[in-house]
């Protein structure tokens, strides 16, 4: 009865500290809070490097990059505004990528469905497969000049391999009993192709197409760095020659942004095209 108040209040302080800590921990564990912290930390480190000149004067601050991008939107650079440069790169990617998908998937299909074709193509394909597409740049410029063709060629080289491999594997890994299902139900070989081969191989082919697309995007920048009068790689290269780091980082930021948008839209496309896979992932 003498001093009951003191220990009780001390206890309640401890307890409220524990609850406070619990709340803080819950906030820190929240996914979105962590996202924000991650981005803020990244921007802070960036700004620290720029302001304290860790790499001399060759690191622009975020504001400089944004204002540079703004000015490139308005004032043409080598006769093209920023959006026109982006479009130059994008159109190269699209052409090379589409050519690669058409030829690569077709080749993969033939290799999977006919073992003679496979035996004929495979040795050369395996020989050329591990070659980095960028290694082709010099030869490509000698062959096709510094115009569009050489860049489309590089993109094609980079994008065709995953298409071939995934189309081939996608078909080879189909459970042969699935064909028996169609045959038992009275289906013809054409039905086996429509009802089994295409839908069963589709997810693998689509995954190959996704890899192709990011590979194509890497290739276009590399090709433009070497020889181009337009495109994002050209902007980056020009920034280096003009000692304008904000131009370089601006170009890099645009690449990251576009690659992100493309990845998102491809993911969305896949969810739409393969509903049976979507629920597999979410469930």
């Amino acid at each position: 009865m003498s001093t009951p108040a003191e220990p009780k209040s001390r206890f309640s302080i401890v307890r409220s500290c524990i609850t406070m800590w619990g709340i803080v921990r819950a906030i820190l564990k929240n996914r979105f809070v962590l996202y924000v912290i991650s981005v803020v930390c990244f921007l802070y480190v960036w700004d620290f490097i720029a302001v304290h000149r860790v790499f001399g004067s060759y690191m622009p601050r975020l504001v400089e990059v944004i204002s540079k991008l703004g000015s490139m939107m308005a004032e043409p650079l080598a006769t093209k505004t920023l959006l026109e440069h982006v479009w130059a790169s994008l159109s190269r990617v699209l052409i090379g990528f589409l050519l690669a998908v058409v030829t690569g998937v077709a080749l993969g299909l033939f290799m999977a469905l006919n073992r003679h074709v496979n035996a004929f193509v495979r040795p050369v394909f395996d020989l050329l497969k591990p070659m980095p597409p960028i290694a082709w740049i010099s030869l490509s410029i000698l062959w096709f000049g510094i115009g569009e063709t050489s860049k489309v060629f590089i993109i094609w080289v980079g994008a065709v391999v995953p298409c071939v491999i995934n189309a081939y594997n996608g078909i080879r890994l189909i459970d042969p009993e699935l064909y028996d299902v169609v045959r038992m139900l009275g289906g013809k070989p054409r039905d086996e192709a429509v009802e089994v081969v295409m839908p069963a191989a589709f997810p693998a082919i689509f995954a190959g197409i996704q890899i192709s697309l990011s590979s194509a995007w890497a290739c276009v920048v590399a090709a433009e760095l070497v020889a181009a009068r337009s495109g994002i790689g050209f902007i980056i290269n020009l920034g280096m020659n003009l000692s304008e780091p904000s131009m370089i980082v601006g170009g890099m930021a645009i690449i990251a942004l576009i690659a992100w948008v493309i990845a998102l839209s491809v993911e969305w496309l896949e969810r739409w095209l393969c509903p049976w896979k979507r629920e597999l992932l979410n469930g």
Binding site: D175, E177, L178, D180, V181, R183, M184, L185, G186, E195, V196, P199, A200, F202, C274, W276
Partner: peptide
């Protein structure tokens, strides 16, 4: 002489089409 619609087969491993 071959598979036909007048015989129906139920498979041990189900063999449903996952995309359907």
């Amino acid at each position: 002489t071959g598979p036909g619609q007048e015989r129906g087969l139920v498979f041990q491993r189900y063999m449903l089409f996952p995309w359907k």
